[in-house]
């Protein structure tokens, strides 16, 4: 009963907040791309959240923003020294890093162990590379946005990418989510049923990689952790049922992003940080509700 009530309330509040946010942006003649960038980025990560928890990939998910951090730094170095597009370099390097971590887990390395090695490696290398970039090139602004994110400065390329990846994640989750959830719930029976586990895992690593790496500049790698993990944790507390919890986590992502954008524009604060803060508030509220 309670879960179906909170479900309806969530839909209601989300719709209201989306309308308010769009109305505010249009009313004050701000670019509407702001809304799409932040809401679709948040949706992309939030929709994967439940799959990440059920498939026990929290550690891979938590380390991929670090891979994004390193990849973004190397992307700057590569595009300056070799030439080519920063964004493409970042995606290519980042995906290689995520696949390496995924392959380690696939080969039976404990996910916690592989994540610790991976985080240690990509954070220290990332810091090294970004220090190099800061001291050698004039890329200060980019480096700051990789860390803390700036959806409002996004290039058209990144705006388009956010919209595509947001839609893609939602389609992905609703089309193969059931299989992935089942693999996470009973891997032996999934193997007996003939599911190709490696293929589903590989597709999920790809989606995690494409979102965290492609959106690193708009969301910032620090807040990617929050966007990726909190919606699923909130939905897991508030909902019974996979189908519900997936939709709920998407609603939570849209809600936090649109209210976050509204508040951050009107108070001139960092948008992805405000949305992250809202997620934390929602998390605390659900933890209290669940505790009762």
């Amino acid at each position: 009963m309670r879960s179906s009530l909170s479900y309806r309330i969530a839909i209601f509040i989300t719709v209201i907040s989306v309308i308010l946010s769009i109305a505010y942006i249009i009313g004050n003649s701000y670019p509407i791309e702001w809304f799409f960038t932040i809401v679709m980025s948040s949706t992309a990560m939030g929709s994967l959240s439940i799959l990440i928890y059920t498939r026990r990939l929290r550690y891979l998910a938590a380390s991929s923003p670090h891979a994004a951090f390193l990849a973004a730094g190397l992307g700057i170095v590569a595009s300056v020294s070799i030439g080519g597009n920063w964004f493409l370099w970042t995606i290519i390097i980042g995906m290689v890093l995520v696949y390496v971590a995924g392959y380690m887990i696939y080969k039976g390395v404990d996910p916690e162990d592989s994540a610790s090695i991976f985080v240690a490696f990509s954070s220290s290398m990332g810091a090294l590379v970004l220090y190099y970039v800061l001291t050698r090139y004039s890329y200060g602004v980019s480096v700051v946005s990789i860390v803390i994110g700036d959806p409002l400065l996004s290039s058209l390329e990144i705006v388009a990418y956010s919209i595509v990846i947001g839609l893609l994640s939602v389609i992905y989750v609703y089309s193969v989510g059931r299989e992935i959830i089942y693999i996470g719930s009973d891997i032996d029976d999934a193997r007996l049923a003939g599911l190709k586990i490696w293929l589903y895992d590989w597709s999920l690593y790809t989606m995690i990689g494409l979102t965290t790496i492609g959106l690193v500049k708009s969301v910032g790698f620090v807040l990617e952790h929050v966007y990726l993990l909190l919606p699923g944790a909130i939905a897991a507390m508030m909902c019974r049922g996979v189908a519900r919890s997936i939709t709920f986590s998407i609603l939570v992502s849209i809600l936090s992003a649109s209210i976050g954008l509204l508040i951050s524009i009107s108070l001139d604060l960092a948008p992805s940080a405000v949305s992250g803060g809202i997620l934390i508030i929602l998390f605390v509220i659900s933890a209290i509700m669940k505790g009762r």
């Binding site: 026990r56 959830i181 089942y182 996470g184 719930s185 019974r240 996979v242 189908a243």
Partner: peptide
């Protein structure tokens, strides 16, 4: 069962 799993008996 993963402690974050939301799958119900029926869905399972």
């Amino acid at each position: 069962v993963s402690k974050y799993s939301t799958i119900t008996v029926r869905e399972f």
